[in-house]
């Protein structure tokens, strides 16, 4: 059986897929890839359905050795170097990791979350229907844990390594404001507070993790207190606790909460927001439902079109080849034009 052996990795490196559906009523967070479109893109590069579980890196990289056969791999997301036995692989390009070779993922130079997909996915038993690791409930991942040195990830034996491909799409987020829909508790805030929220700049604080991103900036004043009887939470809800500083609830959020939610990040902008590093400026723009739904459709269509966006890499991206050809960067640039 082909497997990937973890030689080293950052402490929050974990398996993530589309998340855990159907258990929020029992208090189970959905989890899932923080930047799902990058996971979907990595999966497309190795011929997988978009929601196949991949390895999520959080700022720090890792090293993985292939055993038992050859394995198609691809890395997409935060800007991280990928090398195979020391040879640099171009960004957003799948490659065959041969038996005995080591793939090294560097730390993130911009963005936070990167995804390594393997052809065929991992042969790991899902928990409550998903491989997504959730820290607080110790669910998913490898036996309820993040990855660590010494772990062995069994891969799907039937998968073909496939032809190396390149994805000539720019996945970087840009600096447009993050789109939100107001509510569900915008009536807990004064019109001035809502105006402040939509017009001022905020900064992603160092308290930003898979559960939520705290923002600093102008205080958002409540109109009628900040305690509500707990109600349901969705990913992207922006709650304003007593401090007046917003918390954007992310994939590992709790399922219910008792602070008023001024607005909700639309589904199509969650991935882009997730890649903002601590210290990054962020602005919000309110959109109506029609614009949010149009964005949701465009997002769905973008994911569905990923396989068609791929371009074959016209030579064998093996280490030997990469070492012998010094023009990889130029060749790939030519492909993407």
């Amino acid at each position: 059986m082909i497997s990937l052996e973890v030689k080293a990795c950052g402490p929050m490196t974990s398996l993530q897929d589309h998340g855990r559906a159907g258990y929020q009523r029992f208090g189970v967070s959905p989890s899932g890839a923080m930047d799902f479109r990058s996971l979907a893109a990595a999966n497309a590069l190795v011929g997988n359905p978009p929601d196949t579980a991949g390895i999520e890196f959080v700022n720090l990289g890792g090293a993985f050795t292939c055993a038992g056969g050859d394995l198609g791999i691809a890395l997409v997301g935060a800007e991280c170097a990928l090398t195979i036995d020391g040879a640099q692989i171009p960004a957003q390009t799948s490659v065959i990791l041969k038996e005995g070779q080591t793939a090294q993922v560097g730390h993130a130079r911009s963005g936070t979350f990167a995804y390594l997909a393997v052809a065929g996915g991992f042969s790991v038993e899902p928990q409550l229907g998903s491989l997504s690791f959730h820290l607080r409930s110790r669910l998913g991942g490898l036996n309820g844990s993040p990855l660590k040195a010494g772990d062995r990830l069994p891969c799907d034996a039937g998968a073909q390594a496939g032809e190396p491909m390149h994805l000539p799409l720019d996945l970087r987020g840009g600096e447009d404001p993050i789109r939100v829909m107001l509510g569900p508790q915008d009536d807990y805030f004064t019109p001035d507070a809502i105006e402040t929220f939509l017009s001022e700049e905020f900064t992603v604080s160092p308290q930003a993790d898979r559960m939520g991103f705290q923002l600093t900036g102008p205080r958002i004043e409540h109109a009628k207190g900040f305690n509500i009887v707990s109600d349901g939470i969705v990913t992207g809800h922006i709650q304003i606790p007593g401090s007046g500083h917003p918390i954007v609830l992310m994939r590992d959020r709790q399922t219910a909460g008792g602070y008023p939610k001024i607005a909700t990040v639309i589904g199509a902008d969650l991935d882009r927001f997730a890649q903002l590093r601590p210290g990054s400026p962020v602005r919000f723009r309110a959109v109506d439902r029609a614009e949010a739904v149009a964005a949701a459709r465009a997002y769905r269509d973008w994911i569905a079109a990923l396989p068609e966006a791929l371009m074959p890499v016209r030579f064998d991206l093996t280490t030997e080849h990469l070492l012998s050809v010094n023009l990889i960067g130029g060749a790939v640039d030519a492909l993407s034009r």
């Binding site: 009887v229 939610k261 589904g267 739904v293 949701a296």
Partner: peptide, 17 residues
């Protein structure tokens, strides 16, 4: 019936326990 972003809504029957 309150919108919670584009993918959810909350049917709110009250605000007490």
């Amino acid at each position: 019936v309150l919108a919670c972003g584009d993918g959810a809504l909350s049917v709110e029957f009250g605000d007490t326990v």
